[in-house]
Every structure is written in C-alpha cells, then in structure tokens.
Design a protein around this nucleic acid. Sequence first.
DNA 1: CTGTTAGCGCCTTCAG
DNA 2: CTGAAGGCGCTAACAG
Lengths: 366, 366
Amino acid sequence: MGTTIRDVASEAGVSTATVSRVLAKFSGDSLDGGSFLPVAEKTQLRVLDAVSRLDYRINYTARGLKTQSTMMVAVIFPELANDFFMNVAEGIEQELNSRAYTMLMASSLNSIEEEKKRIAMLAERMVDGMIITPTGTRGDHLQALADQGLPLVMVDRIVEGTNLDAVTSDNEGGTFQLTRALLADGFRRIAFVGGEITLSSARERLSGFGRALAEAGIKPDPSLICLGGMEIEDGYEHMRRLLQRPEAPEAMVAVNLLVHLGMERCLLDFNPDGMGKEPVIAGFDESWFTTFLPACRYTAAQDAVGMGRCAGRRIIEKIREKKSGNGSPEGKTGETIIRLPVAINRSDKINTKQNNNLYYGGKTWQ
Amino acid sequence: MGTTIRDVASEAGVSTATVSRVLAKFSGDSLDGGSFLPVAEKTQLRVLDAVSRLDYRINYTARGLKTQSTMMVAVIFPELANDFFMNVAEGIEQELNSRAYTMLMASSLNSIEEEKKRIAMLAERMVDGMIITPTGTRGDHLQALADQGLPLVMVDRIVEGTNLDAVTSDNEGGTFQLTRALLADGFRRIAFVGGEITLSSARERLSGFGRALAEAGIKPDPSLICLGGMEIEDGYEHMRRLLQRPEAPEAMVAVNLLVHLGMERCLLDFNPDGMGKEPVIAGFDESWFTTFLPACRYTAAQDAVGMGRCAGRRIIEKIREKKSGNGSPEGKTGETIIRLPVAINRSDKINTKQNNNLYYGGKTWQ
DNA sequence: CTGTTAGCGCCTTCAG
DNA sequence: CTGAAGGCGCTAACAG
C-alpha cells in the first residue's frame, strides 16, 4: 500500500540500491559501524528530497526479513498492573527508544506455562533480544534460548539453572538495613512476613533479615518467620495469624509492597489490641502512598527505573556484540549480575516536597 | 539460522506450499474464514510430524511481508507506570492473545510530540491496528492514520477532530454519583479539584459534578472549581490554596487518583485546622490503598480491565472487517463510543474480604 | 488434493 | 560512486 523504496528510487532517478544506502546512513543507528558506503552529496540530497516528498516510511518488516533483525526487544513480566514492573518498563523503554529499538511487552500471568507460550510467540516474531522477569524456579528454557543465540537478560529475579546476565536490587542489603533500623529503634522481637522461597528476591531479603539479627546477637525465632506468598492476601493472612498469637512481635519486616498492604489492611479490620502498642512495619518497596499506611515506619525504595535502564543498555550491548560477531564463543559470556542499591527512608519523610522525592521512579541510576 | 519452511517441506517430502497450507490450519486463527484449502489427512500428519521433529517455528516477519499483516497491535499510553493504564493493558492483552495477536506497547510520555514519534515508529513496524489513549487536545493525526486505513481505537480519552471508535468510562455519571453521595451526607459547599480541561475525561467529570449540584438546587460557586492538572503535585497545590482560604469547602471531589493523593498528602503536611471538621474527599478512581487515605470517603472505581478487553475486541473486529474487505467505504465507520459504568464505593467498604473486592481490576465487563 | 511460480520490500554482493 | 540481480521465508494464484 505505502510507497516503497522503488517509488523513491524512480522519483529520485536512482536505483533502489542507492536509496537503501542513504537510508542506512540516516536510519537510527549512527553508532554502529560508523563507516557507510559513500554516496555523492548531491545524490544523497535528491534521495532525501524524494523521501520527504513521497512521505516514504521504511518497512521494517521487509528490512527485518533481509537483515535478520527486527530492532524489537521483547519484555516479559509476570504481570503488567504492577507499579514496580512498570517503572522498570519505563526505564527499559527509555534506553530502547533512544537506540531506535521498539519494546514488545507481554505478561506471563505469573505462570510458567504462560511464560513459555509468550516466549515462543515472541521468538516467532524474530525479536533481537529479550528481557524477562522469570516466573518459575528454574530457567532451563531461558538458558536454552540464550544458548540458541538470543541475547537475554533477566531483571529483578534470578533463576536457577542459568548463567545469564541479570539486573536486580540489593535485596539482601535492603532488608538488612530495614531490620537494622528497627533494631536501632529498640525492637527485639521482629517478624519477617511473606516471601516465596522459590524467588531469588525473596530468599535474598530473608537472608538480609537474618544477618541483621545475627549482627545484633539475636537468635532468630523460627515462629517469627512467616514465609509464603507475595500478594496482598498473603500479607493479610499472615498478619491475622500473628494477631492471634499470645506473644505478638513488636515489629515486622514485609517482604514487598503487596504483602505490606495486606498486613495494613488486616490491622485496619481487626483492631490490634493484642499487639500491645502500635504495630510497626518496615516494608520493602516504596510508593506514592506508603506514607499513608498507618503502621509503616520504614521503606526500602528500589530504583526500578534505573534497573530498567540498566537492563535496556545491557541487552543492546549484547545484541551489538552478537551482530558484530564478537562476544565470547557461543555467546556463553560468564554471567554479570548487577545489583542496584536501595534507599531506606523513614515513612514520614517520603513524598514530601522538601526531600524532592515526590515521584516514585523519578530517580535514575548512574 | 532457524529451520525454514523449505526444510520442513523436504523433510516431509512435500512442497512448501503444502506445508504452508497445513500451517495455516493450525496457526492461531481457526476463527477467520473457517474454510481452508483441503489437504489429505496423511499428508497433514507427515507435515506436522516434520514440523515437530525439526522444531520448526513459523517466521512471522516473512509471513507478514507477504500477507501485509503482522498480527501485532500497537498500544500507546501517556505513561506506563500508572495503575489504571496497566489494568487497561492487561485487558487488551487478554483479548489480543486469545486471538493470536501480539501487543506492542509504547509510552507517549504525556507529550504530543513523543506521541507522534511513537506512532511513526510503530507504523513502520506495519502493525495491524492501534489502540491509544491520546495525549493532546486534538486528534487530527490519529484521524489521518485511520483515514489511511489503519484500524484505530481510542481508550479512556476522547479527542477532538476525530470520528474514531472509543472505549471509556461513564465519567459524567461517576462524578454525578460521587457528588450526590456527598450531598446526601449533608455537605453543601463542595469543591471540585483538578482536571485538565483539554482532556475529555476531565471535562465529563466536571460536568457530572455540575449536574449533581444543579439537581440539588445549589448554584455552583466558581471559586470552588479548582481546575488544572491531573498529577499529584496539582492536587497538593490546589489543596494548599483551599486550606488558606477563609471559607474552606466542607467536602471535595477529586478528579482522579493522583490529584486525590496529592490532596491527602497536603492534608498530612499542613494540619487542616482551617477546615473546621474532618476534611472529606470523594475521589474518582479506586485502588488497593484508597481505603488508607484518611480523608477519603467515596471512590468511583473504573473497570479498567474491562475497558481494555472491550478495546481489544473492538480493534480485532475492525482489523477483520478491513481484511475481509467489508466495512463501510473508506473505513469511515461512524464512531461508536462505549462507556463502561463505574462503581461508587464507600471508602471503608473497599478491599475488605467481605465484599470480595480485594483486587482492583478483578472485575471484568461482559 | 498438490506442486510450480512469482513476488511481498528491502539489502547486499558483484560488476561497472 | 552507482546499478543490476538475487534472495531473505513465506504465501497465493494458477496449473496439474
């Protein structure tokens, strides 16, 4: 339907090859090789003129067929309606767009089966690379894809059975600091709430919690480790059980924002007389509204946008390495895991005009 | 690199045409025409066998070049890190995936310039259709695209200068009911806070507010209409100014969730002694955490996922119409605007186990 | 029912 | 510096 390269060629009175050559020069990646086929200045102008006169748009589908590169990167998250993932997505998009790549986003619906289906679907689309927050416990299918030559980067979660590059947060350090803050406030009986041990992020967070207790010379009480779940309802249930115990904890660390929300909701529903004093929560993740959560005292803010940018840059590097034929043999680069720091904030200091922290995700890394 | 249709053909001892034919039969849309070219049962099996033996994957890029259809739908939102939009996205994705379409998502960064760039970028990708929440005031560029033959559906916002299909919420009715609820509670001096009048959704919400006042026989006080902005900071600023007034309103209607959040944050920062009694807000939009906002009394919950599903279905219909050559001449179908109802909830009833409403977006519209 | 053929729009040697 | 020609992988007539 649209005007093709041939139309431009005849309009400019040159061959399609020539048009193609000047197009290559002006089409996004002026960073690649640097050296383009030489075209006479005035021919170039004639072509460019014809292009704009005809409002010619390059057809990436055709180009992709020839070059085996679609300039598209697939991004797969466990779910879309999730503030954290979407901030990561914004970061990714920023990097991709600045290099003329397009983002193809899909959700795995928190299901390993769906994840595999989506991956298959996207692979058929000949994407140049893929960024994924894996869902299952193991990532053999991801490793297989990478071994097959597809540039692949994991984000947020790191999964067993792979040696892929990954970008994530300093989960261990985050809960370490969160717990330490509670200890400094004088709390001793501290519970850890939520966390699917199949997820690397949850395991790491639990481990940071343990380290802080150890440092303080407190031997961990297993009954205060309330593992399981990463959703609102899980936080709700854990909290309900904690409230029913004769000896409630003095403070709690929530494994993530959703669990934290569930805990708060539960406190709202059942007046926490059993808690003795005011319940106190230190929660991983921060958002616009965490400051409104009554029990929230500390939060660990991840640099979600930064993680996205980082992952975006990494995938583009890998794509370039592959194209230029460089890179270690078989694409089996040793894994590089990047961990971005998290920021611990006191709840009442969040989102104030004063600390310029009004917008979640506004910070960028590096 | 990958195995091609030719490999499969030779492996199965047939021609590529035959392979293509059985592939068409098993490749997603069994809903389309229904009638496929006949292939002998046993040939079919041989092909399918070869396909799985070689682990052949269809190359959509090549197919797209031939069929002029990529089975991709572009989705453009003003921003990604937005709970509402992402719930819409989930709805869209559900519909698209169920029909073998893939979602290509981009953000316009709330800028009309970026929006145009993204559209251009995606058009080059030969997408089959596009769903967009427009950013600017006018949509001439969108109409142009549609006139050019690209199936196009607007979601959430409706923009001037187009006659495109659209899916949105009953914005007018939402604020009408929200305001009515406040009136029923005895409030008389009610403010309307926030709202970019360039956005159809904001205009409609303001209009519902006016109708409710009129119905109650209250003549609107212009000084209580605090227009401008849809972001957190806007709500914050409006609220600050309201607090400084000698005669503060008794209750307020917030144009959306972000403005609502800003208002609440402001109330937290400046103790609202000027308000006389407890401030009360009725806010458009609902989320997991609205129940924690101290001033929040009512919310209007949009069916975001439903809107997405609706838009997804619509775009697929339009794509099909176009393919089958039906549809009114020039694709200039009269516009169809679908408005999904919103649900008004009392804040303290939200997210309780009892009302089974724990998950925002869990509801779907037919 | 199945094979042959001719491109879809573009890029890329290889000659000129 | 530029043009001609072949083909990326697939599908859609048109013959058999």
